[in-house]
Design a protein around this nucleic acid. Structure first.
Length: 477
RNA sequence: GGCGCGUUCGUCUAGCGGUUUAGGACGCCGGCCUCUCACGUCGGUAACACGGGUUCGAAUCCCGUACGCGCUACCA
């Protein structure tokens, strides 16, 4: 294989769709696996869709996921500029080439004309496509009218024959030329359409493999025809299966979070998101499911990409994120957790206590946004008891334990993990209770619940004063 | 409507003609661990869309049907 060059070519819509992330990831993995180049190109040819800050957001999101590119915005490269909005002259030159070769033609049809035409076709049950009425305007006349009339440039698609798309994932897919529209290449505002800009840039940027979503498969024959019209060698194509909503429609907003930023904001780790999304349509071929980016690079191949769409299952993502929360280095976990405590107003102001809270909650944490709920026991001022807690506290043996605890607590300076341990030993001896019978009354009294994180940590964080208060309160009910 | 793609447990998937009583993961259910929950661990639950072929033999190859999805813009 000659040099592998692939690209991720998003249009800056304001956020990064998880489907885009998957496309970017596969391109990245393919490039790195083959020691090729990964190019980032911004497809901002639609002025009406311009969104303030979208590019910055895109770059930041890419940075967060760790998918670094070799050429593109802020980095430059030999085939720039990497913003299509800055390449207008290039497209114009190329359109001129097509015009000169008689491979394209100006179309002067108005929106009304086109709408009427489509309605007519619909009514007659004909395929809805441009009927080519501007195709046969004599060249002289067309040239003259171009000077004064608004127009678009269309590709002259052959009326007969077939165009074959050789797809790495799907095999050969054949399209009948007669059913391919005379695609608009240049809009009346002078901007290129996706089709033109994409083909011209992919060629000029020496892209060897076009890896993109399945929604592009139907327009690929148009692209191939364009390459041929220019006299260019076409790249290889690989169309990725779609990411789906639970109802199996194309993954979209409305049915949950689709933006990478949403998942970041909820406290998902980039490693988990990347790992999860990598498995949506690809697998190594054995039972391995947990992969670092490096491992993905090592094992990835387009041959092992699936054909069928994949439902984005947030449940499994949460599980995987929990797995990563538990498996990253402890200091990294504490660092990230600390940031989240601050952000969520859960910072105790005591670094030691923050650390204890984070450690206590780690086994149960699937994403950092769950911190308020998972750490609630540490921050209660008034206690409410659930049914099971009440049952425990109603027992005479429990009351006895609480009384002893209050007495012993009075002789303890401050609660620490160690002093709590010895305290409980003493309570055990004096009360004669052990195991569940010893611990549950304490848990119920201090948390109002019969489940939760390690009691030693809970009491240590809550502190002697509050523990005493809760014990007395529990005794009173 | 037309064109295209797809179809293995609820979900992500393994399987590329016999090694399959169809394997793994999430979820769910149960055991163990444990003061409890969670984690971890062990076990269970659950699928080849349908109908024809081809073949000694098909989840695997071919054809058809059904269903789903995508595209059909001067959006990408």
């Amino acid at each position: 294989m000659s040099e592998v060059r692939v690209r991720f070519a998003p249009s800056p819509t304001g956020y990064v769709h998880v489907g885009s992330l998957r496309t970017a990831l596969y391109n990245y993995l393919f490039a790195r696996h083959h020691q090729g180049r990964f190019v980032l190109r911004i497809e901002d040819t639609d002025q009406s869709r311009y969104v303030e800050g979208a590019v910055e957001n895109l770059l930041e999101t890419l940075r967060w996921t760790g998918l670094d590119y070799d050429e593109g915005p802020e980095k430059g490269g030999p085939y720039g500029p990497y913003f299509q909005s800055q390449r207008k002259e290039i497209y114009h030159e190329h359109v001129q080439q097509l015009l000169d070769k008689d491979a394209a033609y100006p179309c002067f049809c108005s929106e009304e004309t086109l709408n009427a035409m489509r309605e007519e076709q619909q009514k007659k049950g004909l395929p809805v496509m441009y009927d080519g009425r501007c195709r046969n305007i004599p060249k002289e006349e067309a040239l003259e009218r171009m000077k004064s009339e608004p127009h678009v440039i269309r590709l002259k698609v052959p009326r007969t024959g077939n165009t074959m798309v050789k797809d790495i994932i799907r095999g050969d897919v054949s399209f009948e030329n007669a059913l391919i529209d005379d695609q608009i290449l240049l809009k009346s505002d002078g901007f290129p359409t996706y089709h033109l800009a994409n083909v011209v840039d992919d060629h000029l940027m020496k892209i060897s493999h076009v890896i993109r979503g399945e929604e592009w498969l139907p327009s690929t024959p148009k692209h191939i025809l364009l390459y041929r019209a220019f006299g260019w060698q076409e790249p290889q194509f690989a169309h990725l299966p779609l990411l789906l909503n639970p109802d199996r429609t194309k993954l979209s907003k409305r049915q949950g979070d689709v933006a990478v930023e949403d998942y970041r904001a909820k406290g998902f780790l980039p490693q988990a998101l990347v790992n999860f999304v990598a498995l949506l349509g690809w697998n190594k071929g054995d039972d391995q499911e947990i992969f670092s980016l490096e491992e993905l690079v090592k094992y990835f191949s387009l041959e092992r990409v699936n054909k069928a769409g994949a439902v984005f299952d947030v449940h499994k993502l949460e599980w995987m994120n929990g797995h990563y929360i538990r498996s990253i280095a402890e200091d990294e976990y504490l660092r990230i957790g600390q940031e989240w405590l601050k952000k969520l107003n859960l910072d105790t102001g005591d670094a030691q206590k923050n650390r204890l809270i984070l450690q206590a909650v780690r086994p149960a944490l699937n994403k950092f946004a769950d911190l308020p709920q998972k750490t609630a026991v540490f921050f209660k001022d008034a206690l409410e008891y659930d049914e099971q807690a009440k049952e425990w506290l109603a027992k005479p043996e429990s009351k006895e334990i609480l009384k002893i605890m209050i007495e012993e607590l009075a002789q303890t300076d401050e609660l620490t993990l160690e002093s709590f341990k010895t305290l409980m030993k003493t309570v055990q001896k004096r009360s004669g209770q052990k195991g569940k019978d010893l611990w549950m009354p304490v848990r119920a009294a201090i948390t109002g619940e019969t489940h939760g994180p390690d009691l030693g940590i809970v009491l240590t964080v809550i502190g002697k004063r509050k523990v005493e208060q809760f014990l007395k309160q529990a005794l009173a009910i």
